[in-house]
Design a protein around this nucleic acid. Structure first.
Lengths: 161, 161
DNA sequence: CGTACTTATATAAGTTGGCTATACATTTAC
DNA sequence: GTAAATGTATAGCCAACTTATATAAGTACG
């Protein structure tokens, strides 16, 4: 069988399994505390990447977000219609577009982040102090984990099967 | 303005802001490491809730997942078609259906969890030991945080608290 | 107990955000 | 200078939500 992945409260089998359950539930929890009207996850993640790392090509963004190139074309189109990004010609390649975040985009990101941080602050106020400290102490680890290179685990592209 | 949510690496303004950024990126990261074909987040979260807490009504599940009642009817229909849940009459209320997880559903949950834990194990192996320990130490805190009552932050309609 | 209100779920129709397949434009190789 | 490769866009499809509404069952009160 497994080692804690069952139905009940996550037993700690030594770590990974319980952490995995916790992260899985965290993903749903983050969705639940996000107001409905907000821009979708892929678009915001893309915008965040552009703000953090500078202009990038559509196809690079698609690879980074693990969606198809036409999918990313759509994301960029929507972001551009909202005024959050601009397409610019790539000086070194006439086929490519460099997607650049605008000031409006940065403003939106900041506002969204502030709103989410406020919600988080409220929710985190409901748990015991030692748990709160454990979470805050994990910030650096989370940042490092999620920054880890794409590094295909194996899945995602075997569609031709 | 904000308190550290600006450009650059997450400065620690006391914590919440950097943690919020990290969690936001974590949500996208979890999506990226999830194979495309997998069942959607809402359905899996619903299945997990049923497995962890027992049979529930459609409308209660909808409130829990913060989607509309017709939306949850659709989720349950799909889960039932996959054989993961069953609709049963509520003995105390002829209008309501009690949604119950099946053995097939539990098996699927366990398999999915094992697969995700394996990916997490690999990814977590890439970060330094102290970060890994910090993450594992936050498992309980994450579980507690995400178990926190729905508690409407402000948007959408009022859930029956 | 019958009529009106309320509540639980289902259905209908529309929107959104992804997908595959393919067209188009440009760059690269020979 | 053509042919193949590459970056983006378009077309058409589908899944998973949304709101509005219909149906059926419970509840309250004359």
């Amino acid at each position: 069988m497994n080692t804690g992945g069952g139905a009940g409260p996550p037993r700690d089998d030594g770590g990974i399994d319980g952490l995995s359950t916790a992260l899985e539930r965290l993903a749903s929890w983050l969705r639940r505390i996000t107001p409905r009207g907000e821009y979708d996850l892929v678009a915001m993640s893309t915008l965040d990447a552009l703000a953090a790392e500078g202009p990038q090509r559509i196809s690079d963004l698609a690879a980074r977000e693990r969606i198809s190139q036409p999918g990313m074309t759509g994301v960029v189109t929507r972001l551009a219609e909202a005024g959050f990004v601009e397409r610019r010609p790539d000086p070194t390649d006439g086929r490519a577009a460099l997607v650049t975040v605008t000031d409006t985009g940065r403003t939106h990101l900041a506002a969204r982040h502030a709103a989410r941080a406020a919600v988080l602050a409220e929710q985190i106020g409901r748990i015991p102090e030692d748990h709160r400290r454990a979470l805050l102490a994990a910030t650096g680890a989370l940042t490092e984990l999620t920054a880890s290179a794409p590094h295909d685990t194996d899945d995602h592209k075997d569609a031709t099967a």
